[in-house]
Amino acid sequence: MRPTVVKLGGSLIEHGALAQLLAIAERHSAVVAPGGGRFADAVREAQARLGFSDAAAHRMAILAMEQVSHLLLDRAPGFSACASRADFEASSGRPALWLPRRMASSAPLPASWDVTSDSLALWLAGALGARKLVLVKAAEAPATSVPAEWARAGLVDGHFPRLAEAFAGEIVCVGRASPEALAEAISAPFGVAA
């Protein structure tokens, strides 16, 4: 069974719709990939002040995502915590939440701010053979379905379009953290835009 990966942006941890978004992902047995939110912002700020390398910042931002995963697991204990491919295989068909530290740290991706949690979620979707990646954003959804245009508009990181070209599944972007749009995007058959 090919899963659907739902990437919840880190800013959504303070959004009023978070509980609904998690409930929808859980009901549809989705795999949730977290953003880094305020924790990743703290890494950016510390790098600007302290001057450590992008490679170190990349690893620290992955740890920020892991922190958000633990926060989400606390809010939605019905998800299986998955840190490895074996964990995902064991939870097949059930809702899962990605603990990214182990897998993302060894992903063959550039260690820079050109790769954020959006690209890492897309990499995970490819690694799991997902049928669909749904990006849930607090911002307005893009008018286009072209990832390169999303990157130009600053909605996703600069590396995302390259990964999107190689992804065999579908990529959908839901704006305004809309629970209704997320439910529709997950349920829609392959090739039918939400």
Rank of each mutant, 00 (worst) to 15 (best):
56 A>R: 11
37 G>I: 01
140 E>N: 09
110 P>T: 07
113 W>L: 10
100 P>M: 12
126 G>Q: 14
41 D>A: 12
59 R>E: 14
86 A>T: 12
81 A>H: 11
90 A>C: 09
102 R>C: 00
107 A>H: 06
46 A>E: 09
35 G>R: 05
84 S>A: 13
93 G>T: 10
86 A>G: 10
94 R>C: 10
37 G>Q: 05
103 M>D: 13
115 V>P: 03
99 L>I: 15
121 A>E: 06
111 A>Y: 06
108 P>A: 09
93 G>N: 11
123 W>C: 03
96 A>T: 07
82 C>S: 08
89 E>M: 05
80 S>R: 14
132 K>G: 01
119 S>Q: 07
97 L>I: 15
64 A>K: 03
50 L>M: 12
34 P>T: 14
81 A>V: 10
96 A>M: 08
49 R>E: 13
104 A>F: 01
137 K>D: 01
128 L>V: 11
112 S>V: 09
45 E>Y: 00
42 A>L: 11
49 R>F: 09
131 R>E: 15
46 A>L: 14
140 E>F: 05
30 A>R: 01
137 K>E: 05
59 R>P: 02
138 A>E: 13
92 S>T: 13
104 A>G: 05
118 D>S: 10
74 D>H: 15
88 F>A: 01
128 L>W: 10
52 F>M: 13
110 P>A: 00
86 A>I: 11
48 A>Y: 02
99 L>T: 00
46 A>W: 04
52 F>G: 08
124 L>G: 04
68 V>Q: 03
108 P>W: 10
121 A>M: 08
116 T>S: 15
106 S>P: 00
121 A>T: 07
49 R>A: 15
75 R>M: 09
105 S>W: 09
142 P>Y: 08
72 L>W: 07
131 R>V: 06
114 D>L: 00
141 A>Q: 06
130 A>T: 08
33 A>P: 04
32 V>A: 05
36 G>F: 03
45 E>M: 06
63 L>H: 15
133 L>H: 04
82 C>H: 04
112 S>E: 09
113 W>T: 08
113 W>C: 10
129 G>P: 05
80 S>Y: 08
76 A>L: 07
67 Q>Y: 04
103 M>A: 15
118 D>I: 08
83 A>L: 00
76 A>V: 11
50 L>N: 00
119 S>W: 02
59 R>C: 13
43 V>D: 01
116 T>M: 04
114 D>G: 14
75 R>H: 11
103 M>W: 02
63 L>A: 14
104 A>C: 06
87 D>T: 11
55 A>E: 15
120 L>D: 02
57 A>I: 09
134 V>Y: 02
124 L>I: 09
60 M>I: 13
47 Q>I: 05
116 T>A: 10
62 I>K: 02
123 W>Q: 08
95 P>T: 03
94 R>D: 10
63 L>F: 14
131 R>Y: 04
